[in-house]
Design a protein around this nucleic acid. Sequence first.
DNA 1: CTGTTAGCGCCTTCAC
DNA 2: GTGAAGGCGCTAACAG
Lengths: 332, 332
Amino acid sequence: MQDVAKAAGVSLGTVSNVLNHPAKVSPVTAQRVREAIARLGFVRNDAARSLASGSNDSVGMVLADIENSLFIDMAHGAQEAARAAGLNLLLANTTCDMGLQDDYLDVFDQARVTGMLLAPMEDSSAGIARMRSHGRQIVLLNFSPKPGTCCSVLVNNEHVGYLAARHLIDTGRTRLAYVVAHDDYQPVRERRRGVRAAVEEAGARVTLEEIDSVGLTTAHGHLVGRDLAGRKPGDLPDGLVVVADELANGIIHELHTVAGIGVPDQVAVVGCENNRTAGSAAVPLTAVDLPGRAMGREAMRLLMDEVASGERHRHATVVLEPELIIRSSAPR
Amino acid sequence: MQDVAKAAGVSLGTVSNVLNHPAKVSPVTAQRVREAIARLGFVRNDAARSLASGSNDSVGMVLADIENSLFIDMAHGAQEAARAAGLNLLLANTTCDMGLQDDYLDVFDQARVTGMLLAPMEDSSAGIARMRSHGRQIVLLNFSPKPGTCCSVLVNNEHVGYLAARHLIDTGRTRLAYVVAHDDYQPVRERRRGVRAAVEEAGARVTLEEIDSVGLTTAHGHLVGRDLAGRKPGDLPDGLVVVADELANGIIHELHTVAGIGVPDQVAVVGCENNRTAGSAAVPLTAVDLPGRAMGREAMRLLMDEVASGERHRHATVVLEPELIIRSSAPR
DNA sequence: CTGTTAGCGCCTTCAC
DNA sequence: GTGAAGGCGCTAACAG
């Protein structure tokens, strides 16, 4: 920076000013400085900058599974909001590894980022507490925090289950099943409540069973589908609420394509995520859409609010509503 | 850090040593210091650290399209390799926006990262030159650099086209079409060469036409499919090499599901990416797989090699081979 | 509006 | 092993 100052024939402070407070510098001087910067290929050292200023214009986002389009949508939304606020969004992917997640939280903590966004798969109270004890702001996405520990943005997962089941009931299905696994995963339990609520609301004419799919992948879906296909016709559910889209696609494949059990004719299927793949499956999947993008935006907004209000900030939880997307696997 | 030193009853330098050169400190002292760190919740300021030491243990990866599973795979591969080397991989997504891409290059440049990985969609020579002129190491992924400007990891895209066309020819197809758009996109042109090579190799019995799909989305595929479905039977190609998987899925949907033109019976279709969605489509897509993970790993290796060898480094290009994955849309 | 100066928090010689 | 001192590159007062 000294070199730039010399080259432009000004003092070091002036160079700093054209970089950080352009209004304080006369246009011609500023221009001269900018030219010198360009000519010398000067790049301001951000480490020194944030050390001296104590501020930092990036926010870190830690994502449990970049493979999942919900998380990608959240990243998009957060990025939009960050850019609008003049901040850079840095991403880190943990592939559902809590050790890696902790490492990345620490990386961003050490980097003294302006704030952090965390979209985990499991309970991350420990990491959140650690960040907060260091005074670092963090907002949680898609996971309920311990009450009062941080801001969060959630989707109304109970309503996800409700919408899915309700759609099946409204279209005449009476023998429902909730296909599910990973009860340790928060949304899974919440969606169950919604499914049950819809079934109870419908009265005795509608029954509900629960099918354990063990896992959430397409392969697990194949297993469930095969199992279902082996049942006596009378024992077959006529409507499936499937907790994850991939799982649903697997089931449909086995049922419809392999075993010839018509979807949606004999069995209607509703997914609970509306992943990117939902629409292009063998039988396009009716699914409840999770508003990832809006979640990312809201999280960023909450974070900036927290950063701005300092001491007198109160944690908030924003709950966004899901929306049913009707496709062929469970038509209108 | 001063506080930690006081709490542990040692000097500041000792604390620094337990953090950076544990071997230089007696085990008991080190332990005492570590306890103090934990007790006080001390977090080392990375800005100060990299300012003082001049080093930095993160590498930045700039991705053009996090939506595309190839890029996600590259990120995975790079992350594995980075972790193995004790480095943190920071991700940035540009959504194919060159302005954003330049911004992120600058962000990482200013952060003085150890190195950068760039997977762009368009020619990025300017940005690369800028980074290199600042002495920052950068390796390019999935895009040929101007010769001698940086290291790069590519896939043999000509062979991608060749494998696709060759598979169709080997399974008896004789009227091929290459469905394509975005000729400005490097891989698109290279794949064409491979397709042509395979067709020429087969002699006069195999013909090739080219179909312009205008864009690469599912919607564009629908248009192409409709067009094709409207042709007289004799004019219909019996084998399609489609430059992008989404596009292929769109075509198949329109052909097979809507117009009742059997895939693969009447028309076989091969995709050129093997995206995450390829296997779960209406008709599971035969596609040429791009080895994203290995590309990410290789890129990281190249980067570290460059960082290690300093002055006497020579740029290298690693070309990875694609592999045909056979599914129903063009069976064996 | 410009130039000067005192740190930001840590790392790294260097004597002890 | 340990502790004291100088400096990394920049920002934010402050005095001209």
